[in-house]
């Protein structure tokens, strides 16, 4: 028992670090890559930490139109994401909770966060925020089937309904008949990842033109600590959804800490890839976005079909 205690504690510490401290680094990394690609020096990698610290000291402003729902958005979203982060394996380390069917809970917790964010946006009574909310829910209705087709394909390949065996099935990448489906799943999920995290080419996190925004327009009226929560929640979502993409690709290493390091490396690499995509691609016109998402659905659906033969 004492021998098992130390690795468990280390695993806990590792998870706490990844979930609570690491996330704000990822957007900073993406921004840095974009700045380098554009030939600028850009803001420091730790910029989001500074922002969060500043916002945490500031007082929040609440419109007289809003009710408690306005606050439930940021708090509930972060709470839902934190619970979801308990379910997801980080590389080849064990998650805190795993049971048959946790994939469904995972997907619905993401849905819960979205529901509360949208309500919080509608609570301001502003037309812009309502517009962003409408876009968010309609695009996510297309992202959801892509996510579930991917889960279905992995469930069929691994015979399990739990995220941990699904994502940690090492050797899938090299097994000939599974590598094709896995590539398709990752392509579909990559599109979901970009859409859910409101990255280019679906949405531009840096835009300041309300007419073209999706996610950012919903949080315009938040300030102070609620805004800090929203920013932290967005970066946490990058890590949680990023783990879906990174986990199946990681090799199994002999030591626990090596697996942890491999995960950190994978997430860092994902941030670099996202930065490169954002530097080279332009944002789609709004009517192109559904086509992009349908491509994601089709990719995951084909992955499932390939597994049938």
């Amino acid at each position: 028992m004492p021998q098992a205690l130390v690795p468990t504690l280390l695993n806990l510490l590792f998870r706490a670090f990844v979930v609570l401290l690491l996330p704000p680094l990822i957007p900073g990394l993406i921004t840095k890559i974009k700045a380098w690609m554009a030939g600028r020096s850009g803001p420091p990698v730790l910029q989001l930490y500074y922002d969060l610290a500043k916002l945490a000291r500031k007082q929040a402003v609440f419109s007289r139109t809003t009710t408690w729902v306005f606050l439930a958005g940021p708090v509930g979203t972060v709470a839902a994401l934190l619970v979801a982060s308990l379910l997801i394996p980080l590389g080849h380390t064990a998650p805190l909770l795993a049971f048959e069917g946790d994939v469904i809970l995972f997907a619905y917790l993401l849905g819960l966060g979205r529901f509360l964010t949208v309500l919080s946006a509608l609570d301001t009574g502003s037309a812009f925020e309502g517009m962003g909310a409408a876009r968010e829910v309609s695009f996510s209705a297309l992202a959801e089937p892509a996510l579930f087709f991917g889960f279905a394909a992995l469930a069929r390949a691994t015979g399990s309904l739990s995220l941990t065996p699904m994502l940690q099935s090492h050797g899938m990448w090299t097994a000939g008949h599974l590598s094709g489906p896995l590539m398709l799943i990752l392509a579909g999920w990559g599109i979901v990842f970009l859409a859910e995290n409101s990255r280019i080419p679906v949405d531009d996190p840096n835009t300041h033109l309300e007419l073209t925004m999706i996610h950012e327009v919903m949080v315009l009226d938040h300030s102070g600590r609620p805004l800090a929560l929203i920013l932290y929640g967005a970066s946490l979502k990058l890590v949680v959804l990023g783990a879906l993409l990174v986990d199946p690709l990681l090799p199994v290493l002999s030591k626990g800490w090596l697996n942890g390091l491999a995960f950190l490396g994978g997430i860092g690499l994902l941030a670099v890839v996202v930065g490169l995509v954002e530097s080279t691609a332009a944002r789609f016109r709004m009517n192109k976005v559904p086509q992009f998402l349908v491509a994601g659905v089709l990719a995951s659906a084909f992955a499932f079909l390939l597994l049938l033969v």
Partner: peptide, 19 residues
Amino acid sequence: GALALACFAKAYGTVFLGT
């Protein structure tokens, strides 16, 4: 599930939230 979420966010938001 995703469409129901959209519909009820709209219904609750339109009836109870805003002005």
